[in-house]
Simulated assay, not measured.
Amino acid sequence: MSSSKKVIELFYDVVSPYSWLGFEVMCRYRHFWNIELKLRPAFLGGVMQESGNKPPGMVPNKFKYMTSDLQRLSKYFDVPIGFPADPFEVMFQKGSLRAMRFVAAVQEREVGGDKQVEKVSRELWRRIWCEDKDITLPESLSEAAVKAGISAGEIEELLKLSQSRLLKLSQSQQIKDKLKSSTENALEYGAFGFPMVVCHVNGKTEAFFGSDRFELMAHCIGEKWEGPQPSKASAKL
């Protein structure tokens, strides 16, 4: 295996529970595989629209299957996924645009680097898919950021950056453009949903959709898949 780390981009949106599974697995394996993981928060709604795809919730049989599927996957991956009282409202009526702009603002300001992005993203997933809380409200975003260890002053600035009515348009536009750029990048790689993992290997890219392609991904990058919980003995120091 080459000593140089392979770059892996993870495109995700916190409105997607399958993205949460992929996110947690990749965050675990970056300590075991010879990779550099780059978190790429993006807007799933934009990807679905531009690719012409339909969300599972819009197809009754898919939505019914998704409910039982996520229950099984939650146990298998050890990720505390539960369904909100009104998943249709959460996923389609309220959506995640404001939340993902907030995550983009965290990344743009490099508050703690990707460590803060990782923590904020995880807290937002918890709020939707574990605690059934609204992530469209500024106070909800603030609470998630507090749990992620971001200071009150930084949170205030992040909220301003992610909401145009609170700050100069030019500064807010920078965050909108960042999220838009990440979403467009995902589409350029062929995304039609999330999670989308893009591996850069020997000058080529290999894209994998979903949270059930890790074994194949490992084969393509020359690493070993040990299941959702890799052995600590395999950790790279």
Rank of each mutant, 00 (worst) to 15 (best):
P84R: 04
V146F: 12
E24P: 00
A99V: 02
P17W: 15
L169M: 08
S151R: 08
W20I: 07
F32R: 08
K178I: 11
G52F: 12
L161C: 01
V197S: 04
L159M: 12
I35A: 11
P55G: 03
D114S: 12
L179G: 01
H219N: 15
S172F: 10
R98V: 03
R126C: 01
R72K: 11
Y189L: 11
Q174V: 10
A207T: 05
E9D: 11
T136C: 01
V14C: 12
V120P: 00
L187K: 12
F209M: 10
K38A: 15
L44M: 13
W129T: 01
S172A: 12
A42Y: 05
S181R: 14
V198M: 07
I150E: 02
M48C: 05
K5C: 06
N202T: 05
H200N: 07
Q116D: 14
I175E: 01
G153D: 11
I135S: 00
S4N: 13
A207K: 06
V47P: 00
E223I: 08
Q173V: 05
E215H: 07
F208P: 00
W20F: 14
G222E: 10
G95F: 03
D134F: 02
G149E: 04
Y76V: 15
L237D: 13
F63T: 07
P41N: 08
Y18T: 04
P55W: 12
F77Y: 13
G222V: 05
K180T: 11
F63A: 10
Y29V: 02
D78L: 14
L216Q: 10
V25E: 08
A152W: 03
S4E: 15
L158C: 09
S231I: 06
S142T: 07
M26I: 08
S3A: 15
A218I: 05
Q116P: 07
H219L: 15
P228V: 08
L167E: 06
K64N: 09
D13A: 07
G210S: 03
R109L: 14
K160L: 03
A148Y: 00
L39E: 04
A145P: 00
L21V: 05
A42T: 06
F214N: 00
A104T: 02
L169H: 02
K133L: 14
F194K: 02
D86W: 09
R109H: 08
G52Q: 12
E184C: 05
K115C: 14
K180F: 14
L187D: 04
V15D: 04
Q229A: 10
S68P: 02
A235K: 09
G190H: 06
A233R: 13
R40Y: 06
V90L: 09
G82L: 07
D13V: 03
R28F: 09
L166E: 11
V7Y: 10
M58E: 13
R127Q: 10
E36C: 09
L169R: 01
E89N: 03
G227D: 06
A99G: 02
S182W: 09
E9G: 01
K75P: 00
